[in-house]
């Protein structure tokens, strides 16, 4: 079937099967930032935005995107550079494979709860696994980014 939707601000269409996932469709459209780490909705690597809200693209049928707005890290390069600088300043990205999914969820967090406490950050991002970093430095980097977003200096 043919699916028409908005991808990173541009109208696109794709031919998909009924059982294709949004993840598969986005990869086939060249959205290489979108990664897959588990296929069972446990790792958060495939996180993208659907109408501004974070979704796991491995579990969203491609056909469900018809008429919706999908955003990937490719479509948020300026924000990515800003959050990326915070993460890189800590060396918190390590292998980087989980970074696009994590960053998309951080952008969702910044929208929904920009004044999040450390515990709230951990809870919001609990589904974004990272095997390299031990998380501590990522939490620090995300706090710093949220400070930039809100203009609020935290203790």
């Amino acid at each position: 079937m043919n699916v028409e939707f908005v991808l990173n601000g541009r109208r696109v269409s794709a031919i998909v099967d009924a059982d294709d996932s949004l993840y598969k469709m986005l990869r086939s459209l060249g959205m290489h930032s979108v990664k897959c780490g588990c296929e069972t909705t446990n790792c958060g690597l495939c996180t993208v935005h659907m109408d501004g809200k974070a979704v796991l693209s491995c579990s969203v049928p491609a056909a469900r995107c018809a008429g919706h707005e999908i955003t990937t890290l490719e479509g948020m390069q300026e924000e990515a550079a800003r959050l990326g600088a915070c993460l890189a300043g800590e060396g918190a990205e390590q292998c980087g494979f989980c970074a696009p999914g994590l960053m998309m969820n951080v952008f969702a967090l910044a929208k929904e709860n920009p004044h999040a406490t450390a515990a709230e950050i951990d809870a919001f991002l609990a589904g974004n696994l990272c095997r390299c970093s031990g998380y501590v430095s990522q939490r620090r980097a995300i706090m710093k980014y949220l400070e930039q977003v809100t203009g609020e200096v935290r203790a």
Binding site: H32, S33, V34, T72, L73, E74, Q77, A80, A81, L83, G84, A85, L87, A88, G89, G91, E93, C95, G96, A99, P100, M103
Partner: peptide, 14 residues
């Protein structure tokens, strides 16, 4: 110093 590949990794480059 930040990792040399950090900008590519953190903007989702292929």
């Amino acid at each position: 110093v930040p990792k040399k590949d950090a900008p590519a990794l953190l903007t989702g480059k292929p």
